[in-house]
Amino acid sequence: MILKDSLVVAQHELKLEIRNKNALGGLILYSISTVFVTYLSTGGYIPNNLFAALLWIILLFISINAAGKSFLQTNNGRHLFYFSQVSPQAYILGKHLFTSGLVLVLMVLVSGLCYFLFSPKIESLIFFAITIFLGSLGFALTIGFLSAVAQTASGNFTMVSILSFPVLLPFFLTQIKLLNITLAGFNIDLAYKYIGILWLLNLLVLGLSYILFPYLWRD
């Protein structure tokens, strides 16, 4: 029941996003220009560890822009509509599904672009892809949930960044470490360790938002 409802919510969000092509196009353009600005300002020749750090900083800002809006965009009327139709758990899961999809698409786009522009030597392409996937999941879930908190609090966008930056740091640092080892000195044991940590963090955020969201919802 909850799963079915959440799928409906995600579908609904997707429809709205596609209907509003300006916002989606704006996000994609924002991502591409951020990468290009970084490329021009660094000259394209950067060491591996700097590449990993820059990539995650770019991805962080893009996901804040993409996932941060997820609740701020929802106006009161639509909120009320969902309130009458689905349970809060289904609603947050649906939102999570949609934002992680959106962030994943943007992240794949950005990291692909970075790959072509900076042409880093990647030792393990599969683990690079896994890192991007897990990272997008973590960013989308955390920022999505905190945007719900910010929306109930004051509804301004700065609040999303204030709330999410410190909380995102565990993800951020683990992802940079993981990316670093996929770029140079690949070590399968270490990679599995970091992937395990990332899964743990993702599941925790998912669980916490599932439990805590109903309390935000009562408005």
Partner: peptide, 21 residues
């Protein structure tokens, strides 16, 4: 209500972070 939600969320992440780091 909102502060409590954020407090719980942030504290759990913090403990995990201090454990992982």
């Amino acid at each position: 209500r909102i502060a409590a939600v954020y407090n719980i969320f942030a504290f759990v992440m913090l403990v995990l972070f201090l454990g992982i780091l």
